[in-house]
Amino acid sequence: MQKCAGVMAAVALTTTVAFADAHADKSDWPSSFTVGTASQGGTYFAYGSGWANLVAEELEISGGGEVTGGPMQNMALVHTGDAAFGMTTMGPAAESLNGTNPIAPGLQMTNACAMFPMYQTPFSVTVLSSSGITSIADIPAGARIGFGPAGSTSDTYFPRMMEELGVDFERRNGGWSDLGGQLQDGLLDVIAFAAGVPVPAVSQLEVQTDVNIIEFTEEEQMQIMEAFPVSQFNIAADTYTTLEADARSVSMWNFAIANCDLPASFVEAVVDVVMSDNERMVNIHRAARSTLPENWDKNTVMKWHPGAAKWFTENAGATIAADMIHGDM
């Protein structure tokens, strides 16, 4: 089996190199690129920096991840071209396209295009075991809750979810690593995470102290699904050492995005690097187990970059409507 896996990996690598060679004319490619991620300690930063480095190495072009405020800011950065690539969730993407992104109200960010599916973002709650909190209903009135960076998916949707569930709280923002430290120091009562699992900050907390990872009840899960653009999700028991069973949650899909004006051959080559060898992506972050070609259909919001649409049509059997491809009608 190991020998077989090694052969498959070699074939995948050869395929990627061959694809890159097939696009030897890189005259219109940028000399470098950045990927908008999110705060350090969160899944976006680990995942995004990882695939940026992988692409840079395989395509022999300078590139890397950049710390940002998360999905809302990434939509703005990619739309304006200040970042070639970024990552977003479907909710913030829809708001940005509709002109309700709080970073630039009224601006319809239609120059950010879908590039490839990433993974689902579960919404989860973490507290110190010493708090005695074991359910959403246990969260005391006036609890100090950290919702992640301002403008992030978590900060956009989790406060509304908590209000929907009748939780009274004080809203706090910050990077995930910083909020983890504040929870440990007693400066926060709860952290409400919306990030691919395992969340690095939660994994670090587990090593340093005892935590409770709070799941939603069936009723709470249904209530949130009816009120927000999320779907049912279970956080697998093997995700964290703290969990003894799967934890009930809700989730929202994430997609990598590209500035729509980037050369089609460049974006196609980038997509090929990321999508052609899932094992390498999973080695970057376990959330990439969902970074699979067949998940192309999870994008129902953004128009596709032509280069990305070409790759998925030719390699994943995708049937993408012409009016869902940027520049086509």
Rank of each mutant, 00 (worst) to 15 (best):
W253I: 13
Q73V: 10
N234A: 10
V78C: 09
T43Q: 08
S27A: 07
V17M: 11
I145W: 04
V301F: 11
A258G: 08
T68Q: 07
T209M: 03
A322E: 11
G36E: 00
P140Y: 07
V7F: 14
Y240C: 04
T156S: 15
T156V: 10
G42D: 07
E164G: 00
L187S: 14
N234H: 12
T291G: 14
F233Y: 15
T68Y: 00
V211P: 01
V273F: 02
I61E: 04
R286H: 09
T239C: 03
A24S: 15
V250G: 03
E60Y: 06
P306T: 09
E268M: 02
H23Q: 13
D328F: 06
V7G: 08
T134E: 15
G70P: 04
V190E: 07
F266D: 04
N74R: 02
L128M: 10
N295H: 13
Y119C: 09
A201Q: 01
I136Q: 11
A20C: 05
Q221N: 11
A141M: 03
N295K: 11
G181W: 07
Q232K: 11
N299Q: 04
M72R: 05
M324I: 04
N53Q: 09
M87T: 14
T156M: 15
P149V: 02
L107N: 10
P117H: 09
T68F: 00
S152C: 10
R160A: 13
I284P: 01
N212R: 08
D155T: 09
V67Y: 08
W296S: 12
I214W: 12
Q40W: 10
N254H: 11
G142C: 08
W296P: 07
A141C: 02
G70Y: 04
M225I: 14
S131K: 08
V211W: 01
V78K: 08
A237D: 02
T15L: 14
V230N: 05
P71Y: 08
V301E: 07
M87S: 13
A20M: 06
E314T: 07
A56I: 08
I139P: 00
L54G: 00
T156R: 14
R172C: 10
R248P: 06
